[in-house]
């Protein structure tokens, strides 16, 4: 390979990498949030099918919520003692539960608007806080986000809806269960719940499909 070819390869690798680094360097929690809300709005508008829309919303949540950090914070004193495999499964099960709970609140074609309340509040330890208000119809809710920086990118690790922190809400319950019956019991509970809800969703889908088939001429 001659020198020109090496330079070309180096440029190909370096230029996109540099651009990526520049984009993330200038991203702020606010810009991340604005971008995600925009994506969510597009998804809600684009997909009239509730199931497809919710699947896409889950994918968006994956790209800006740090479920690992959220899981670690809900299990103070326990997380550090868990094995890598246990952590992985807990994060996976907890994520399913969280996504189902929050994504199910969205409906296809639901119109909503967002007001950003003030600027980003940067805190010690590379943390930041963004406050928003979501307006939908006549109702509104204050939805705040706690961010932290991980691998050069801002991730939300807690969502506070009308002053109730998702992380703290579950932390209280999880700590109680772990103290009473241990971590495995908690994991089993969440795992069983997810299985049950998945079955229910499948049954609902079947029922909807048979309804649709009946209504067709």
């Amino acid at each position: 390979m001659n020198t020109r070819a090496w330079i070309a390869i180096l440029l190909m690798v370096w230029i996109p990498g540099g651009l990526y680094a520049k984009t993330h360097k200038h991203a702020t929690p606010m810009s991340v949030l604005k971008q995600k809300y925009l994506e969510m709005k597009k998804v809600i508008k684009k997909y009239p099918d509730q199931r497809v829309m919710r699947d896409h919303l889950r994918q968006i949540m994956e790209t800006f919520i740090d479920y690992e950090q959220l899981s670690a914070l809900t299990l103070p004193g326990t997380w550090d003692k868990l094995k890598k495999k246990q952590r992985k499964e807990f994060v996976d099960q907890f994520k399913q539960m969280i996504q189902r709970t929050y994504v199910n609140k969205f409906n296809a074609n639901q119109k909503f608007s967002i007001t950003y309340n003030g600027k980003v509040k940067y805190m010690k330890g590379g943390k930041a806080f963004v406050s928003t208000t979501i307006h939908s119809g006549r109702s509104e809710a204050q939805v705040d986000y706690s961010f932290h920086k991980k691998r050069g990118k801002w991730w939300a690790y807690d969502v506070i809806i009308d002053e109730i922190s998702m992380m703290r809400k579950y932390r209280r319950q999880f700590v109680r269960i772990v103290r009473r019956s241990g971590f495995d019991s908690l994991l089993n509970k969440i795992r069983n719940l997810n299985i049950r809800r998945r079955k229910e969703a499948q049954q609902q889908e079947k029922a909807d499909a048979s309804k649709g088939a009946q209504s067709e001429p």
């Binding site: 709970t101 809806i161 009308d162 002053e163 109730i164 809400k169 319950q173």
Partner: peptide, 9 residues
């Protein structure tokens, strides 16, 4: 907020 939180739980 309380009702929504309890409903989720």
């Amino acid at each position: 907020s309380w009702a929504i939180a309890e409903s989720d739980l």
